[in-house]
């Protein structure tokens, strides 16, 4: 295994306490990668255990969130590489899940945002999620994805423009439903949220 030397129980406890606070974020990131909620939780659990096994190599006090996100992302892509066939099936399942997001309680624009995100190239979607939703700096996102900072910046910028274009054109896969005014509804909602604050 990774660590054979005896571990300081206090260190392990501190590590564990911190990783517990990251579980919700790992689940959210996994959900954006997998689409399917069950597969996402499996991925998040695997990543959590990989992080635990590798805890000896983690320097307490450094950015554990970025470190665990990198582990989760690597896990996701190595599983994808192991079986491209499975990947295809996952992709189909994810698409079904995305399309099946049909909770009548959910605001219309949120579903449309999900569908539109699904149309972005994976590397753009990932960069936008990390920076735009995960709260990571460009430098941290670059480290997580293993690319240059400039690459992340351009991916995020392209993703933002593409997302806006898709939403404005109503070009997301609506599964046969009538086109709603997604952009109008997002704008109205943002206004409501910002005034409520």
């Amino acid at each position: 295994m990774v660590d054979r030397s005896p571990r300081d129980p206090a260190l392990d406890a501190a590590f564990k306490a911190e990783i517990v606070t990251l579980i919700p974020h790992l689940r959210a990131f996994a959900r954006t990668l997998c689409g399917n909620a069950t597969a996402a939780d499996d991925l998040a659990q695997d990543a959590m255990m990989k992080a635990w096994d590798a805890r000896a190599s983690f320097q307490m006090g450094t950015n554990m969130k970025a470190w665990t996100f990198m582990i989760l992302r690597n896990q996701f892509y190595s599983e994808k590489r192991r079986s491209w066939r499975q990947t295809q099936l996952d992709q189909e399942a994810a698409e079904r899940t995305l399309v099946a997001v049909d909770d009548p309680e959910a605001p219309v624009a949120l579903n449309e945002l999900r569908l539109s995100l699904g149309m972005l190239p994976p590397e753009q979607r990932e960069a936008l999620i990390l920076v735009g939703a995960g709260g990571f700096a460009y430098e941290e996102a670059a480290e997580i994805c293993g690319v240059a900072v400039g690459t992340v910046k351009s991916r995020v910028s392209r993703a933002r423009r593409a997302l806006l274009a898709i939403l404005e054109a109503g070009a997301y896969d609506r599964d046969g439903r009538a086109a709603g005014d997604a952009m109008g509804s997002i704008l109205a909602d943002a206004e409501r949220l910002s005034t409520a604050r």
Binding site: A109, L110, I129, G132, A133, G134, L167, D189, A190, E191
Partner: peptide, 11 residues
């Protein structure tokens, strides 16, 4: 507005 929505979705 899209940014607000995106964070809301993640959160």
């Amino acid at each position: 507005a899209i940014g607000v929505r995106l964070r809301q979705m993640f959160d």
